[in-house]
């Protein structure tokens, strides 16, 4: 570890347009700096040594939280975990995202760290990702060439890898309104202490067919138990059109556990996946009935 950062050339664009122009010029030799809670430690640990650092945190265009019944939720990439966790609209309608953001790091890290930085870091245990997976979010990505929308499940390509190029920045996270009559939650256990990396994270969303009293469908996403957070599709299938009785919940939990590929503490993580899926589903089902 070094205690002083290696020299770099510094840019501080005030608009997205300026930012992407700089990135277009320097590509992979440049790094975007948002809250810095990941980039600065990575530089000190000499994992990366960018020649150009593009500080985007002053771009006021990217600090919005907008909500409309039609278009859903739009969060600027530079919104901090703290702001998301304390946003009344998010706490009301996207409670699991508020909960996930409130899990990230320490109070200081939550104030400094941004949601954009969290997803671009793209580690297997990043806490916002399982929530974004079940909310079926999409990322708005901008470069000098224009913008594109990347669905969340295509955004993460591997551990610490995303689908965006060095010329692009994420500008917005777009989250559709959850299906009516649905509830969702994020639950986790950490590795050792309360403020710690997530050992297993489970996000789940249950949609209800109120007429028939059954589950219309479920989305379940698992964090920290594979190269990247992912949807447990086989487990989800089991729930469709069913009542969530305890036997079924057991089966779903087991299916979810089987879909995981943890690297360390594998048996324990699988066991935790089963338990957390179970407790999350039980909690949600009890809310629906």
């Amino acid at each position: 570890m070094i205690t002083t950062l290696k020299s770099f050339q510094y840019f501080h664009p005030n608009t997205v347009e300026e930012a992407v122009q700089i990135l277009n010029k320097y590509g992979d030799r440049a790094k975007v700096l948002a809250g810095g809670t990941d980039l600065i430690p990575s530089m000190k640990r000499q994992k990366i040594a960018p020649q150009y650092v593009v500080y985007i945190n002053d771009i006021s265009q990217l600090k919005h939280i907008d909500f409309g019944a039609e278009e859903g939720l739009r969060i600027g990439a530079l919104v901090s975990h703290h702001s998301i966790a304390s946003s009344s609209i998010i706490r009301e309608k996207f409670q699991l995202l508020a909960k996930a953001c409130n899990k990230v790091g320490t109070p200081h890290v939550r104030r400094m760290g941004t949601i954009g930085g969290n997803i671009c870091m793209a580690g297997p245990s990043q806490d916002t990702i399982p929530a974004l997976l079940v909310l079926e979010a999409q990322m708005k990505v901008v470069s000098l060439q224009g913008e594109r929308i990347i669905p969340v499940d295509e955004f993460f390509t591997g551990p610490f890898q995303t689908a965006i190029t060095g010329e692009e920045i994420v500008t917005e996270i777009q989250i559709p309104c959850p299906p009516s009559d649905s509830v969702a939650d994020y639950q986790w256990v950490t590795k050792r202490t309360v403020v710690d990396e997530t050992l297993v994270g489970v996000a789940a969303l249950l949609g209800m067919d109120l007429d028939r009293g059954v589950c219309k469908g479920a989305r379940i996403a698992l964090g920290s138990v594979g190269p990247k957070p992912f949807r447990a599709r086989e487990a989800e299938e089991i729930i469709k059109g069913e009542k969530l009785e305890s036997k079924l919940i057991e089966a779903v939990a087991q299916a979810a556990a089987e879909e995981t590929k943890p690297r360390s503490r594998a048996d324990y993580r699988r066991r935790e996946v089963g338990l957390l899926v179970k407790s999350t589903l039980e909690h949600l089902w009890s809310q629906l009935r």
Partner: peptide
């Protein structure tokens, strides 16, 4: 302190 966890206030 990330890879070796001493208790915080919450522990």
């Amino acid at each position: 302190f990330t890879n070796y966890k001493i208790p915080s206030t919450l522990d």
